[in-house]
Simulated scan of single mutants.
Amino acid sequence: MTNAAEAGPDLPRALGYLRKHLLMTESELSEAEGRLAHFAQVRGFRLQQIYVEELETWPAAFEALIEAAGTDGLSAVLLPSMLHFAVLGPPAEIKQYFEQLTGTRVLVAL
């Protein structure tokens, strides 16, 4: 899990989630985190943290994300793409499950 820059304490809270792929470099990871932070800023969210799913420990970050998303006041979870849910099952079904379980919207940072 990676901490992201916080901005604007009165903005709606968001968390990020991404899954590292087998050959992902630290530069690519940093770029993906930067895209999530930029999307949050443009859409008016305060990105509190980005959960990074490691290949060796999955689904630990997803489970931690579910726990964190259950807290009051969280507005959204941001993903670089729906493919980051793909390893857990069909992305649309995982999104629906996550939203129903936590009451938190899942948004793709395009």
Rank of each mutant, 00 (worst) to 15 (best):
T71N: 09
F39M: 00
T104V: 15
K20R: 15
G16T: 06
V52T: 14
S30C: 03
A5H: 07
F98M: 08
I66A: 06
A109S: 15
P91R: 05
F45E: 03
G89E: 02
E63V: 13
A7S: 13
R13G: 01
D72N: 07
E26C: 01
L101V: 11
G89Q: 01
G44F: 13
K20E: 14
M1W: 03
L36A: 00
E67T: 15
L101Y: 11
F39H: 14
T104S: 01
R35M: 10
M24W: 02
V42H: 00
H21N: 09
A40M: 06
S27N: 04
G44K: 06
P9C: 08
E56L: 12
R43W: 08
T71M: 02
L22V: 14
A68D: 15
E99G: 01
E31V: 10
L29T: 04
E56Q: 11
D72E: 15
A40N: 05
A76K: 06
L22H: 12
L55Q: 11
L47S: 05
N3M: 08
R46E: 11
S30H: 07
E93H: 07
T71L: 06
F39N: 03
L101C: 08
V77H: 00
R35W: 10
A76L: 05
Y97M: 12
Q96S: 13
N3H: 09
G44D: 11
Q41D: 14
D10M: 09
R13I: 15
Q100G: 10
N3R: 12
W58R: 14
